[in-house]
Amino acid sequence: MLSVALYIDPMSSFSYVRDAMGYKERSTWIELVVAVGVFLWYLAAISGRVRGTPIADVAFQGPMIRATLLSIVATIVLHFAYAIVVGSRDTQEDQRDRQVARFGDWVGMWPLVFGAGTALVLAMLELDHFWVANAIYGGFVVSSVTTSVARLVAYQRGLSLA
């Protein structure tokens, strides 16, 4: 019984996703998955270097650059993969997509401002570059995740301009 309840037909799931979501909503899901996935990869890469090393000597630059490049490549590859697997050719965008995008950008702006402000304070306090750079990077990641979540909530719950 449990196995029946948990069984999900992958093709019907793809059909549901294709029919229920527009191109921009699917794209937002991909951006969210990439943002979270790449950040977890970055955390794993950094945590291995932090152990037993003074923070000032931790080489965070390589993983941070690789994480940035990885997020760009992963976003492109996942968009292509999705289009191939699901067979979606619909890439239309309309006024609702643009309004949802603006709403998400507005919500996601605040973590970025907070990250930049934190980095400014850390720089004034002359803390290690590690903390300053990671405050900015963290701001970008949280901003990206917040933007995506806000957009997905707007797609699902609705968007009121009033």
Binding site: F103, A150, R157, G158, L159, S160, A162
Partner: peptide
Amino acid sequence: MTAKPTKV
């Protein structure tokens, strides 16, 4: 602009 259903 908020994420909520419309009154329309």
